[in-house]
């Protein structure tokens, strides 16, 4: 008897249901329940009425935005240099840039803490942003590199041919055509940073609190319903971001992003 090809997906399907779909449904259900199990919007109202949590939420988005922008400023030029065959002739340099992606994030974060200790620099907000940029930089370099690398060089030549200076070639052709990779990278950085908590605790000695920590605290303290509501709010933000990025992603076959 032959097993149909689609049957191969069953193990993953089971995993998906158990580890992704079910918890998500549970979060959604808990978020709209009070302790007695009846439907309520109280959990969401509580969030807007708790200035501390609201503040942490806005602060987390700020940190995520700063991290993403810094990653973009550092990562785009790096990706551009890596993709430019006249500047970078070996694949080894690319590996060096991507290498941190292969190392556990916690290990990298602990190394950052050790580095700050060694340099006698205080841990705190600065260290947090540094650590996050360090952690997430490869995630922006790689998709941007892939789009630039795959881009037909005749586009740039055509622009030059039509009278564009090297700067205009970049702003009018290369940059717009690499946007799918940029969006992909932005999502890869923005979404995980917004929900970071362990990294923040280590790098700021618990001095700075991010939204991920708020969720964790509530859940740890048995406030499952409120914690679920907070998690759902965060998911909403992530969902909006990726929908926004998707809209700009119409040249699907040109993109070389990770998503």
């Amino acid at each position: 008897m032959t097993i149909r090809r689609s049957a191969w997906a069953i193990p993953y399907g089971i995993f998906l249901i158990a580890a992704v779909a079910l918890p998500l449904i549970m979060i959604a259900v808990y978020a709209f329940q009070d302790r007695s199990g009846s439907f309520t919007l109280q959990n969401f109202i509580k969030f807007f009425k708790t200035p501390e949590d609201l503040h942490t939420f806005i602060y987390s988005i700020q940190i995520a935005l700063i991290t993403t922008v810094l990653c973009l400023i550092l990562g785009y030029p790096a990706a551009w240099i890596l993709a430019n065959s006249s500047l970078n002739r070996s694949a080894v340099t690319l590996i060096l840039f991507i290498l941190p992606m292969w190392i556990n994030m916690l290990v990298r974060t602990l190394a950052t803490v050790a580095l700050f200790d060694f340099l006698r620099m205080p841990l705190g907000e600065g260290a947090l942003i540094f650590g996050m940029v360090y952690n997430f930089l490869p995630f922006i370099i790689y998709p941007v590199y892939t789009t630039l690398h795959k881009m037909d060089p005749s586009y740039a030549e055509a622009a030059q041919d039509l009278g564009a200076t090297p700067l205009k070639v970049f702003t009018k052709v290369t940059l717009p055509l690499s946007m799918p990779g940029v969006w992909s990278g932005v999502l890869m950085v923005f979404m995980p940073t917004i929900s970071t908590f362990a990294v923040a605790e280590l790098l700021t000695l618990n001095k700075v609190k991010l939204f991920g920590t708020t969720i964790q605290e509530n859940i740890n303290n048995g406030l499952w319903h409120y914690g679920s509501a907070l998690a759902l709010i965060m998911l909403l933000i992530i969902g909006i971001t990726s929908a926004f990025a998707d809209r700009d992603d119409k040249h699907a076959d040109e993109k070389g992003g990770l998503l």
């Binding site: 037909d152 005749s154 586009y155 030549e157 055509a158 622009a159 041919d161 039509l162 052709v173 717009p176 055509l177 040249h251 040109e254």
Partner: peptide, 12 residues
């Protein structure tokens, strides 16, 4: 000005 083999029209 050049007419390229695979046209190289700007897709954006």
């Amino acid at each position: 000005n050049t007419v390229f083999q695979r046209y190289a029209l700007f897709p954006h």
